[in-house]
Design a protein around this nucleic acid. Structure first.
Length: 754
DNA sequence: TCGAAAAGGTCATATA
DNA sequence: TATATGACCTTTTCGA
């Protein structure tokens, strides 16, 4: 084309929104999509989508899913038969140029007006809707038929026709393509309505009181779920101090309060930085600072201890640990803890100062640990790097996420003080255990969520309505991405959507990982400790104690899983019944994924939150050999995939919100569309994360990950069925628990006979 | 016949 | 090392 000649304004590529270079095979596309369509057609290739068949194709991800790219090509009307050679008729070209020119002027004046308004107002509040005006919605989201130059013109079907009669406004908006222009998803729901809906749902949920908590356990409702009943027997439990259920409640929130303080995460405690258990040889494995309270926490393992040579297998059956060790309490909670211990001291040898002991021992043994790194065992030492969290800098850079973007200027203690008080009050008023407090716990999570992202301090005195208004206002002003993308209507991703979700997921995953991280520390600590330990779990007498502990652990894991679920962006906007069902269903799915790290050299270290560690022998007695072998196989398969913490967390989320379930699809009252959209969104995020973290073999890695899901689901179902056999229909007092233990024992003996 | 526009070809680069 | 991608180039087609 001669210099100065005016080229037809083709706008954006109908397939991927990149800049279109012309009309190729009947549709305005970029060079890439043109070439892709040609190659695909000539070779007659057949593609398959691994992400649900609804991938959005962008210039960044267009090579990720050939199937959806080709599908969109066809849907847009690309065809070898639609070829139109030669010049675009003069009249047609003139009209198009004129429209483009008008649109350019309109945009300019609109932007000027906006600039003036912003200067006058000087408020950030106007950034939301106006942002949307400036950047037109891509045609795919407008659900309009594909066309040659614009979404609505008939030229797609009839390329030789003129543009006359086409939708002027739309074509005009598509005439120019600005490569630097950010692409925004237009919220299908207004900000206020979306959030109001969320909160009204939440209110309903909260209003349901006890209905939801019990339902959120793998045992379903309370009639057959020992955990809630156990929790509600708080204070009179035969298992000693009532602080266990308390620890589930307060401790969880406290752990969040600490883990979500980004400054502390980086400088004091990095629960998510623990790559040392990963079987991965990727660079992530070298990133792990473990600093606790300013002192380096370094567990110490000798090679013999690590490989198990220094420990009798029997001795590894079970080790006791106080639950506090998983939740660093503030002083006032420790005082409360001590009070409870005095009142309810039981035969369980709890140590309220365990944390201090743990950390001081760690400190003392740090030297030997620093130098040790074993290839023979996965319980590896963390490195000295200071930059690691699960979201270590390297990953953040790859994901283009800014680690500092959620930092708040408000002192963390100020932000979380109300939450602590909240729980103090709850504990004073009612000692009903975690399950009775779950609705308020969920509410607190939601408050925390806002605190983390906006620095907004929500006061307890505020009425729920005030709170809702404030949340909506803050979200509208400061988190337009999350608001516009996280609504029920979300379904199509974009770079912003993925990044926004990841940012928020970051905090949710800290809830998930922190207790697990502390457990890991404990395992290392115990394996490396020279102090004499009382091991239990092998004899029949010991086995009696296993059941109470197992039931307590239900409460703990349920707490972790519910916290994680509600932190997953998009989850809390789902139907209440759906949320309840999903958290219940995902219990073992997530448990299996969390436990995968503890399967070392064919030995599974099953951890309970009170510090009990059961290895193969005990677990076979509890779960029967067939189930145990299946668990081990699945855990080994998971480990083989060498997933990083982030991938494990995403997989947890994906299993949580999976809509592919007979009970769900068979229930016509449930609206599964938002769930499917959310699931598809998370799949896309996982694909993005995998492709960015594993620059090579990402497709294979994804395929490996997806091959895990049916295995995990199958095992999860088996575990649920098996555990349900031990159903209890009354509040378990001491006698009842003895009966349970006897029942379990009898079951084991019966199996041995056969 | 000119020249705009699309198809087809080429090859450096990215990815598996 | 093989294959896919896409920017750029050449060839072909067709309106003016």
């Amino acid at each position: 084309m001669p210099h100065g000649a005016i080229r037809f304004p083709f706008g954006k590529c109908r397939i991927c929104q990149d800049q279109a270079t012309g009309v190729h095979y009947g549709v305005a596309t970029c060079e890439g999509c043109k070439g892709f369509f040609k190659r695909s057609t000539i070779r007659g290739e057949k593609y398959k989508c691994f992400f649900g068949g609804q991938c959005e194709i962008t210039p960044q991800n267009r090579n990720r899913c050939k199937s959806c790219r080709f599908r969109i090509c066809l849907e847009s009307g690309m065809s070898l038969e639609a070829v139109k050679m030669g010049r675009i008729p003069k009249l047609e070209k003139e009209r198009a140029l004129e429209l483009a020119s008008q649109e350019g002027k309109q945009k300019e004046s609109t932007q000027n007006r906006k600039g003036e308004t912003q200067k006058k107002g000087g408020s950030k509040a106007s950034s939301g809707p106006q942002f949307m005006d400036v950047f037109p919605t891509p045609p795919q989201q407008q659900q309009q038929p594909a066309s040659l130059f614009g979404s609505l013109d008939e030229s797609a079907q009839h390329p030789s026709r003129s543009l006359e009669g086409a939708n002027t406004t739309h074509i005009a908006s598509e005439m120019y393509f600005d490569a630097n222009k950010p692409r925004m998803m237009e919220p299908k729901q207004s900000i206020s309505s979306a959030d109001s809906s969320t909160d009204s749902q939440s209110s309903d949920y909260l209003g349901q009181g006890l209905h939801s908590p019990e339902g959120s356990t793998p045992w379903g409702h309370h009639s057959i779920c020992p955990a809630p009943n156990l929790a509600s027997s708080h204070g009179t439990s035969p298992f000693g101090p009532s602080n266990f259920s308390e620890s589930c409640g307060i401790g969880q929130v406290e752990s969040m309060a600490i883990s979500t303080d980004s400054s502390k995460i980086k400088t004091e405690l990095s629960p998510l930085s623990d790559h040392c258990l990963r079987r991965d040889s990727s660079p992530r494995a070298s990133l792990s600072p473990l600093k606790v309270s300013g002192e380096g926490l370094r567990a110490s393992l000798s090679p013999q201890q690590v490989s198990g040579e220094g420990l009798s297998p029997k001795k590894c059956e079970a080790v006791s640990l106080h639950p506090d060790s998983f939740f660093p309490y503030p002083d006032h909670h420790q005082n409360r803890q001590k009070e409870h211990n005095l009142r309810y001291r039981s035969s369980m040898d709890y140590d309220t100062d365990f944390n201090q002991k743990l950390f001081s021992t760690s400190k003392a043994s740090s030297n030997s640990f620093d130098h040790y790194r074993s290839d023979s065992c996965e319980l590896l030492a963390p490195s000295k790097s200071n930059d690691s969290t699960i979201w270590d800098k390297e990953i953040l850079v790859k994901l283009q996420l800014n680690n500092d973007s959620f930092k708040t200027e408000i002192k963390t203690s100020d932000v979380y003080a109300p939450v602590r008080n909240h729980y103090m009050i709850l504990c004073e008023v009612e000692q009903g255990g975690m399950f009775n407090r779950l609705p308020l716990y969920i509410q607190t999570l939601q408050q925390l969520d806002v605190c983390q992202r906006t620095g907004l301090l929500l006061k307890l005195q505020e009425t729920p309505t005030d709170m809702v208004d404030k949340i909506c206002g803050m979200l509208a002003m400061e988190d337009r991405y999350a608001v516009s993308k996280e609504g029920v209507s979300m379904g199509k991703d974009s770079t912003f959507l993925i990044q926004g979700t990841l940012q928020r997921l970051k905090y949710s995953m800290e809830i998930l990982w922190k207790p697990i991280w502390l457990m890991r520390q404990y395992i290392r600590q115990q394996l490396s400790s020279s102090v004499h330990l009382n091991y239990t779990g092998d004899s029949n007498e010991d086995l009696k104690n296993v059941w109470p502990q197992l039931m307590k652990s239900v409460c703990f894991f349920n707490d972790v899983i519910v916290g994680f679920s509600f932190g997953c962006p998009g989850f809390k906007n789902l139907q209440n019944e759906l949320k309840e069902y999903l958290t219940q269903r995902a219990y073992f799915d997530i448990w299996i994924l969390l436990m995968s790290d503890f399967c070392v050299n064919s030995t599974c270290h099953f951890l309970l939150p009170n510090g009990q560690i059961y290895t193969n022998g005990t677990m076979i007695k509890i779960l029967k050999e067939k189930t145990f072998l299946e668990i081990r196989t699945v855990l080994e398969r998971i480990n083989k995939c060498q997933l990083c913490d982030l991938e494990i967390g995403l997989l947890c989320a994906i299993l949580l919100i999976d809509a592919d379930d007979e009970k769900l699809t068979g229930n016509t009252e449930m609206n599964l569309e938002p769930l499917r959209a959310l699931h598809s969104h998370y799949l896309d995020i996982l694909a993005t994360v995998v492709s960015k973290i594993h620059t090579t073999q990402s497709t294979k890695r994804l395929s490996d990950i997806f091959s895990l899901t049916p295995l995990i689901k199958k095992l999860s179902t088996r575990l649920q069925a098996q555990i349900s056999q031990y159903a209890i229909e009354q509040i378990p007092d001491e006698d009842c628990l003895q009966n349970i233990a006897l029942k379990a024992q009898a079951s084991v003996e019966k199996e041995h006979v056969f």
